[in-house]
Simulated assay, not measured.
Amino acid sequence: MTTDIDAFLNSELSAWPMADENFKRIRDSFTDGNRTVISDGDSAWQTAKLFVNHRRASITAKTDAASIAARRCFLCPANRPEFQSSQRWRDYEILINPYPLASTHLTIPSINHCQQSIEGRIPDMAALAVELEGMCVFYNGPRCGASAPDHLHFQAVSREAVANFFNDALPKEEINNPSTHTTNSGRVKLYSCTASPFPFFIIEAQDTVKLETMIMKIVSALKAIQSESEEEPMMNIAMRYDSTSRLITTFVIPRAKHRPECYGQENGQMLVSPATIEMLGTIVCSRRDDFDRLNLSEANRILREVGLNKDEFRKVIGKL
């Protein structure tokens, strides 16, 4: 599928001037100083900041029920830009994201207009990761960065945007759990990351069924510490596949908040709205002033604020 995606991307950009310009801008960002690593060179967890002014609409998107009801869904075919075409994949469509965060950035919405929810969709997400080997396939929860929480969708980006996600040297600790074991049908192991500013889960699985079971165990545990709310727990999920080991590596990142206290456009505030890309270590800034002011201390404070704290994380582990 990767070759097909490359051809599809080139075809879309040749016919869509606005998207072509945005992709040129993001590719330049990785070489012209608009992406800067701000963490210590010895740090296992890389924190970077990225200036992309075409992401302003996404960062400032209003996702409350009234705002969603008042606008047309931009992921439904009837409301898409005239230059945007699609490729069918199972019960989804593959679209080029016209406001990219990487040299390849896809949005993969369901063909049906239905709420953003991960339940029952893990096998599809895993299959996408296999099909798009070498890319990061991710899911923004409806209250964790999805600008279209009313329409189920995944996204996928090339690896330069998510360096931590492809860093196999990240320190991690195995979590002892009855579901963490090796079987004839493939192993599944559960870890916590020990290098990031906030705690999250890493799952290594060769079996999609066991992967889905593990992720849904985490979802249930998160619900339990949130008084078993009927809403989907706040989280971001990212997956990648390696055909040599046949492993699907999944990050499940529990969240405490959608946006940090500093979010806003007034003096002293910053337009930083963490979604999966930010939680994987690349802080996206749509204003030059925010990009220039953001330092490592502030970046870590933002990530800690919107991530789950260590005490709550330990409670989740206790519920698994």
Rank of each mutant, 00 (worst) to 15 (best):
L170E: 13
P171L: 05
P171F: 08
P171N: 03
K172L: 14
K172Q: 14
E173C: 10
E173A: 03
I175V: 08
I175S: 02
I175Y: 01
N176T: 07
N177L: 01
N177Y: 00
P178E: 12
P178V: 04
T180C: 15
H181R: 04
H181E: 00
H181Q: 02
T182P: 00
T182E: 14
T182F: 12
T182I: 15
T183S: 11
S185I: 00
S185D: 04
V188Q: 14
V188L: 10
L190G: 06
L190T: 09
L190S: 02
T194A: 04
A195Q: 02
S196I: 13
S196Q: 04
P197Y: 09
P197I: 15
F198M: 15
P199I: 15
P199A: 15
F201S: 10
I202Q: 10
I203V: 13
E204P: 02
E204S: 07
E204R: 04
A205E: 05
Q206E: 04
D207L: 01
V209C: 01
V209T: 03
V209E: 00
K210V: 05
K210G: 12
L211C: 11
L211T: 12
E212D: 13
E212S: 12
M214E: 11
M214K: 10
I215H: 00
I215G: 04
M216C: 07
I218S: 02
I218M: 04
I218P: 02
V219Y: 05
V219S: 03
V219C: 08
S220I: 02
A221N: 05
A221R: 07
A221P: 00
L222N: 01
K223P: 01
K223D: 07
A224L: 12
I225K: 06
Q226A: 10
Q226E: 14
Q226T: 07
Q226M: 03
S227W: 08
S227K: 13
E231M: 04
E231N: 09
E232G: 08
P233R: 12
M234P: 07
M235V: 04
M235P: 05
N236M: 07
N236R: 13
A238Y: 09
A238R: 09
A238C: 12
M239T: 06
D242P: 02
D242W: 12
S243P: 15
S243L: 10
S243R: 05
T244Q: 15
S245G: 05
R246T: 06
L247G: 08
I248M: 13
T249G: 02
F251N: 07
R255T: 09
R255F: 06
A256I: 02
A256T: 06
A256Y: 03
H258A: 13
R259S: 03
R259K: 14
